[in-house]
């Protein structure tokens, strides 16, 4: 009896401990995710008072405006295009580099490469974007270098503009692509390549049939990650872009900070989130198989 009683008491204590432990992530979710999200949705149906503030209301006006004005639709499409292009360029640039780093380089080179990749994240991309705006201006840096090399007739300034925005974006998010690829490329067991070659496949076919498919989950998640980061970034386009390169986050910031139109800012935020949700859902469907088996190179027991 005494033993059984003791057992149930300790079981009850364990139960309480589980709740306590769950309270932490649960609380975090509520405070940092659920509450702000609800506030955002609630604000998006309030009515803006021109000249300052807002009033409690339930109106679709903000959404109607977001969809009626071609400007916002254009900005949304532009943002999606810019982000997708950024993600694809990061993948195209990041894959060969990371492949070399993860599978071909010596341990020393690998360490240096990773350190260099991560070190670019030490500076905030506000500073890095300003650095690019100097480098890409007509009076200094790359424009003058191309002119000096005789590749252009006169020094060309790229910043502010589309090229500068794209370069800034790629530069800002390439490290995330590399780190995402690195894990999945390292996880491909070297004996997979050896098995492929043993079966008669030359290095290129081995890469195509074995390494590439096995690193696909990392490539997909890296592309998705960069896409999402680019969609949410407002610093790079506002520093390196002209108004024609402003993305949705810049528009939202302008509405809230300079127009003081919080309800409309909230409404286009909700629209942006909904679109991203759809994109993620579609990507999830496409990558379903990859998600099920994130690191297929590892032996399961």
């Amino acid at each position: 009896m005494a033993v059984a009683g003791g057992g149930s008491r300790s079981a009850k204590q364990a139960n309480r401990l589980v709740y306590l432990l769950l309270a932490y992530p649960g609380g975090m979710l509520v405070v940092f995710f659920l509450v702000p999200l609800i506030m955002l949705v609630v604000f998006s149906v309030y009515r803006n008072i021109p000249g300052g503030g807002w009033e409690t209301a339930f109106t679709w006006d903000n959404y109607v405006r977001a969809f009626e004005r071609g400007l916002y639709r254009d900005r949304l499409v532009f943002t999606l295009q810019l982000s997708a292009l950024t993600a694809l360029i990061c993948l195209a640039m990041g894959y060969p580099f990371t492949y070399y780093l993860a599978r071909r380089a010596s341990p020393l080179v690998r360490r240096i490469g990773l350190a260099a990749t991560i070190s670019t994240l030490w500076l905030t991309y506000v500073v890095r974007s300003y650095a690019w705006s100097v480098l890409l201006s007509s009076t200094s840096g790359i424009g003058r270098l191309l002119f000096w090399l005789g590749l252009t007739e006169r020094p060309v300034g790229y910043a502010p503009g589309y090229v500068a925005t794209l370069i800034g974006m790629v530069y800002a998010f390439l490290p995330f692509m590399i780190l995402s690829l690195y894990g999945s490329l390292r996880a491909v067991d070297p004996s997979m390549e050896e098995a492929s070659m043993n079966l008669g496949a030359r290095p290129w076919r081995t890469f195509w049939h074995v390494v590439l498919p096995l690193s696909w989950p990392g490539a997909a998640s890296g592309t998705l990650l960069v896409f999402l980061l680019a969609m949410g970034n407002y610093v790079v386009p506002s520093i390196l872009g002209q108004p024609a390169q402003w993305t949705m986050p810049v528009i939202i910031t302008n509405q809230v900070m300079y127009e003081s139109n919080v309800p409309f800012g909230a409404a286009i935020s909700v629209v942006l989130m909904a679109v991203l949700g759809l994109v993620l859902f579609a990507a999830g469907k496409l990558l379903g198989a990859a998600r099920m088996n994130p690191y297929p190179g590892r032996r399961d027991s």
Partner: peptide, 28 residues
């Protein structure tokens, strides 16, 4: 190795996880 005509079984087996059993055997 791809021109040596040996058939090897690895310690980790190194079966291709993204292929079916049949495709693994078909590969070579």
């Amino acid at each position: 190795p791809y021109e040596r005509d040996t058939g090897m079984v690895f310690q980790s087996l190194a079966l291709f996880p993204h292929m079916s059993v049949l495709d693994n055997v078909l590969y070579g």
